[in-house]
């Protein structure tokens, strides 16, 4: 199979999964007690008014008609109308999306930049202080609830020594980026100051996880015969480590990271709550509390689709690094 065919197959699979995500989200409303009407109609609404609202929401149609309507709406970018906000749900969801993406990307950058060198050092200096430090850190990292870590960072770095702002997104990355073009660095500074603690909070678990995976993977790879063979042909140790062992270590690591991406987004939800970060996660929680169905469903679909998209990217990367998987 060629690389192109592999990608095509992977994308088609992804579309299937996204369709499944939409279906599950659609059905969610029907396995939930209470009618959406309760949250739209006033408390003392007459039976007649409730009927009218239900009709307007399309709730009287048969299930499959509602389902097809919903799918058609989504294809046209319509997630429904949020009566809570008095706005199109898609506007709210996509308005909140950039903040979450920023946070997730920043956390991923933190994680990748810290974890891979840490894992490599830990594996190549096995049973030395650096290794003990890295393993202790990674054990703590995967065992600490990130919301609590966020609170502790706030307590120490924001409340006690006032090094960072207590929360809220100061400025959008896009704004800061354009300000940079105009020669104004203050925007970037504000952005960095605000995102540092949330990104560290969200990134720690991932840093720890990838460190652990990289370490054990490197130890595995360094024990294999091809590494010995590479040394025997005179390859310098740095090449053996990075070009050979690390490359093969990262192949399985990438898969696990892709699978764990859900944990990252889930972590973003709670990190946003800790730092008052106005993203999709906060939106999900308030939508759940308000029974704001269009916004809740829209957010879940966007999150699920994002997960699928990133995993397609991850799989393509995997196939690029390890051509064996294509067959």
């Amino acid at each position: 199979m060629s690389y192109g065919r592999f990608l095509l197959k992977r994308v088609l699979q992804g579309i299937l999964v996204v369709w499944g995500v939409i279906t599950v989200v659609f059905l969610l409303r029907f396995i939930t007690p209470g009618s959406p009407v309760d949250f739209v109609a006033p408390q003392d609404a007459s039976q007649e008014l409730r009927q009218r609202i239900a009709a307007e929401l399309g709730l009287n149609e048969p299930l499959y008609v509602q389902y097809v309507d919903y799918l058609v709406g989504l294809l046209n970018g319509d997630m429904g109308y949020s009566y809570i906000f008095g706005q199109e749900a898609s506007a709210i969801v996509f308005g909140k999306l950039p903040a979450t993406v920023e946070l997730a990307v920043a956390a991923t950058v933190v994680a990748v930049v810290l974890s891979i060198p840490l894992g490599v050092v830990s594996a190549t200096r096995r049973h030395q202080p650096a290794d003990y430090g890295a393993t202790t850190f990674s054990l703590l990292g995967i065992s600490t609830p990130n919301f609590w870590l966020g609170i502790m960072l706030l307590l120490v770095l924001a409340v006690q020594i006032d090094l960072f702002p207590v929360g809220r997104r100061g400025i959008a990355f896009s704004t800061a980026f354009w300000m940079l073009f105009e020669g104004n660095v203050s925007g970037m500074q504000t952005w960095l100051a605000h995102i540092t603690l949330p990104a560290l909070t969200l990134g720690t678990y991932f840093t720890a996880l990838i460190t652990r995976l990289t370490r054990s993977g490197m130890l595995d790879e360094l024990g294999k015969s091809y590494v010995q063979a590479a040394r025997a042909k005179g390859i310098p140790e740095t090449l053996v480590r990075y070009r050979h062992a690390l490359r093969n270590t990262l192949i399985p690591v990438i898969t696990v990271v892709g699978l764990q991406l859900g944990t990252l987004i889930g972590g973003a939800v709670i990190t946003e709550q800790v730092f008052n970060w106005p993203g999709l996660g906060q939106q999900v929680i308030s939508a759940v509390n308000n029974r704001d169905w269009p916004v809740l469903q829209g957010s879940l679909i966007v999150i699920g689709t994002g997960f699928v998209l990133v995993n397609i990217v991850v799989d393509s990367l995997y196939a690029y690094l390890d051509p064996r998987v294509i067959e």
Partner: peptide, 17 residues
């Protein structure tokens, strides 16, 4: 495929919902 669909929802997000 159904498992893939379930995996696409972060467990915390789905649990919150």
């Amino acid at each position: 495929r159904f498992a893939d669909v379930m995996l696409a929802f972060p467990s915390l997000v789905l649990a919150v919902a």
